[in-house]
Nucleic acid binder design. Structure first.
Lengths: 202, 202
DNA sequence: TCCTTTATGTAACGATCGATACATAAATTT
DNA sequence: AAATTTATGTATCGATCGTTACATAAAGGA
């Protein structure tokens, strides 16, 4: 049974991608409905009929971001044979993705809505939850390194995951300041220089 | 010759401090004139007479921030006897300052206006310039370490300064996510674990 | 005392904010 | 063909945005 009623005249996914790019570049509160409708090529009633509200559109856009832009960064975590290589690949992919100049620099999850009081609370909480999930992914990979004997038993996986997640967050701001991929790689090198010390094998 | 005309009935510096706290908590675009006048306890004409515009008020507020909240973080750089201790004290002071719960978490310079397209361009450029100045302070201290023989001649001071500045930026986001001082100290420990590797003395 | 100067309080400016009412268009169902 | 359902375009809603006109108040200078 196909859809009833008049079919929509625009590509919903393409419009969502445009919305994602706008939120990514300008943040949640910096993006207006007028900005969105102009970029998506639709009228505001179509936007509200298809996505519900600005808040719902943002949440769906971050989901789309996670499923498209975010994948290449995080798949490296599970594929690399060692935790050390996993973290390094993770940071290198981050450097490459954050510095691409055919799309906004930095990360939508990190930069989209940082001010709880002014942005919608639900938006801010959702991004916070996603950042916490990313921390958990790093933590799981490090714990796997401990379980496999790569890292010593006393290794503080939580502290290390926090450290590397924080470095990645900082890279978003660095990228927003115009840092090249090479400049971001300098930060990656610094972060990986910490590995020996953290692993306690020096 | 004292001031001519009717004297103002509010403390200009106290009002500026209130404005700084608001911008710090909510960001530039998230803070409205109505928010400001309510917190500063004055009417909008008084605000404009005393500070010129929202943009000028923000610039003055960031200056005030740099001269008050920022000092304790950066004075550690020149006072510590070694570059290594200077960086560590710098990060420890950052951890303590960013996690205080009697004021907004994180750094106004890092979080105040990250979206060039939506925020006023001048605001964004000013914060970027201040972040670049901070990078320069780190760079100078590291170069001093090279000049004094603490660090090897081939030490890449610029890359290391970028790394530590990036870590500090990440700590702003981490602090905004509610990280305690101890949690931030875990990041500091990670960043300092990189020192041996960066200095090439391992 | 009058004049000039600066600050305050009220009230409102045009522009934009997110969101929607309404009539019309285009599809399926009966 | 008539009825139902969904989407689009126009036009606009009340609220808020940053900013300012205007009249009044409070100070020093003449």
């Amino acid at each position: 049974m196909p859809e009833r009623g008049r079919p929509r005249t625009f590509d919903r996914t393409a419009a969502l991608r445009r919305a994602m790019e706008l939120f990514w570049a300008k943040g949640y509160e910096g993006t207006s409905i007028a900005d969105l409708t102009a970029a998506m090529g639709i009228g505001s009633p179509s936007l509200y009929a298809a996505f519900g509200s600005k808040e719902a559109l943002f949440l769906e856009a971050t989901d789309y971001y996670t499923g498209t832009e975010g994948t290449e960064i995080w798949t490296a975590l599970d594929e690399a044979p060692t935790a050390c290589q996993a973290i390094e690949n993770f940071l290198r992919q981050t450097a490459k993705a954050y510095s691409r100049n055919d799309r906004p620099q930095g990360c939508l999850i990190a930069l989209g809505a940082l001010h709880q009081d002014s942005s919608s609370g639900a938006i801010c909480d959702d991004l916070r939850r996603r950042r916490a999930e990313n921390h958990t992914l790093l933590l799981r990979r490090l714990e796997r390194g401990v379980a496999e004997g790569e890292l010593p038993a006393g290794f503080d996986s939580d502290a290390a995951a926090t450290f590397y997640a924080t470095v990645q967050h900082g890279m978003s701001i660095q990228a927003r300041d115009g840092a090249s991929c090479d400049a971001l790689m300098a930060t990656v090198a610094g972060a990986m220089a910490a590995w020996q010390g953290l692993a306690g094998t020096a």
